[in-house]
């Protein structure tokens, strides 16, 4: 039984479907990565898993429970957290307040979780009084991931976390993501930088036109000559 199972998802924003029977699976404490060409429906698949898109077919289960009909807010309460690709911080609020807002639904003491986030992203501790909008792109991504972690999620969903950050920052972010996964949190992410992303992935999904083209472990996909030629540039 997979931790998250999104099976046979079909749907889109308007009349035309974008997803055609797309299936995603994430195991406990593992990293699953969705890659594919532009317009393949990667972000759409992510939004569908999070309930931001109405599905015409298929269903989503979390720990065996069917959550297909739940609103995104209700899914947050169930232990899912989502980091959008853009506009993923509260720009006029301080870093610390951003983290507090992540823990908005929690009634218990959040100090320990915040401490974990600061340990994971030490730079945020130094900048905790600064407005998130004034930070660099990489730091802002850290705030965004930190905010999501504050909900103490069981599944963390990241939509292109490395978009627009430098290669050094990207490596750093991937390292952190691995650390998060080691702490037992499952991760589902969409990535443009397919090669690096598959490098850290336990499971990889190559989407083309809204359906699964290749599904295998990250290492296997990296080794597959077809995948290499078509999607990883040789």
């Amino acid at each position: 039984m997979s931790f998250l199972l999104a099976e046979n998802m079909t749907g889109g924003y308007g009349a035309a479907d974008i997803l055609h029977g797309c299936t995603l699976r994430v195991e406990k404490g593992q990293i699953a990565v969705i890659v594919g060409p532009n317009g393949a429906g990667k972000s759409t698949a992510m939004k569908a898993v999070f309930g931001m898109l109405k599905l015409r077919g298929g269903h989503v289960t979390l720990e065996g429970e069917d959550i297909t009909q739940l609103s995104p807010q209700a899914r947050v309460a169930k232990g899912m957290a989502f980091v959008p690709q853009t506009s993923n911080v509260f720009p006029s609020m301080s870093v610390e307040e951003n983290l507090e807002m992540g823990a908005f639904l929690r009634r218990d003491n959040v100090a320990a979780t915040m401490e974990q986030v600061y340990t994971l992203f030490p730079i945020l501790r130094d900048k905790r009084r600064q407005a998130a909008g004034e930070l660099s792109g990489g730091q802002r991504q850290q705030v965004a991931v930190g905010r999501a972690l504050m909900t103490e999620p069981k599944l963390l969903m990241l939509d292109e976390p490395t978009a627009g950050v430098s290669p050094i920052v990207m490596d750093e972010l991937f390292d952190r993501i691995i650390e998060v996964a080691r702490s037992g949190i499952s991760i589902l992410m969409v990535e443009q930088n397919a090669r690096q992303a598959l490098g850290i992935a336990d499971m990889g999904y190559v989407l083309v036109q809204g359906s699964n083209r290749y599904t295998d472990t990250g290492a296997a996909l990296l080794a597959d000559p077809d995948v290499r030629r078509t999607f990883l540039g040789g």
Binding site: Q73, V76, P84, S87, V89, M101, F104, T151
Partner: peptide, 11 residues
Amino acid sequence: DNEDLALLSGI
């Protein structure tokens, strides 16, 4: 600041 993110945070 950010209505969508506020919703994602459960506000």
